[in-house]
Write a protein that binds this DNA or RNA. Sequence first.
DNA 1: TTTCTATTTCTATATTTCCGGAAATACCGT
DNA 2: ACGGTATTTCCGGAAATATAGAAATAGAAA
Lengths: 106, 106
Amino acid sequence: MNLDDAAARLEALGNPTRLRIYRILVRAGAEGLSVGRLQAKIDIAASTLSHHLKSLVVVGLVTQTRGGTTLVCHANYDIMRDLLGYMVEECCAEGSCAPIELPKVA
Amino acid sequence: MNLDDAAARLEALGNPTRLRIYRILVRAGAEGLSVGRLQAKIDIAASTLSHHLKSLVVVGLVTQTRGGTTLVCHANYDIMRDLLGYMVEECCAEGSCAPIELPKVA
DNA sequence: TTTCTATTTCTATATTTCCGGAAATACCGT
DNA sequence: ACGGTATTTCCGGAAATATAGAAATAGAAA
């Protein structure tokens, strides 16, 4: 991941509403969550939610799959892992920033 | 760290210029880098750099210490570690997002 | 105090973001 | 095709951000 992509992804997560959305999607697990259910959880206008979701989709942090009439959103773990990897490698002094008790990738 | 603080810090890093600044400061190590030397490295107007630095200082990612007439900037590893910790704990599914080969805190 | 350098604040402008109502579109069941 | 639900696009206003020149401030040194 290059610096500009990393910055774009950090910017996408750097809004409380969007960070909340992403966090909810992570907790929703592999089956994801429809836009409608998401909206019910966070109580913002549908159009606003759509805008935020688009921001997350554009940078690859969220993917959407259509299931009939509903769009299901999923957190993209690969992108998040790469983003965290970038930050650790490029923006940390040797070991000084490693999160404590970090689970290893199996 | 709560969600709003995390979002504010991600937003601060979510700008290519600021991410570059932070990256340079990390690489500068413990002795840090003066605003002047920083400016020489990235070639933007002094006032613009000052604004970006302020954004990073406000959220705690950068600290400044005065050494005579020059202000020396330091990356704050503690805040970065906490931020990465937040992301791993709150925004990752168990293990799915752990960066590969992450160094442990001694 | 005067002067020099370093950095910030002031001021201004252009651009972008955030928000949500209204309208449009997409898809499904009948 | 029609009706209903889900979601997005369009639009615009308010607020925030990015950028930088000019002026102001802080500190050191003479």
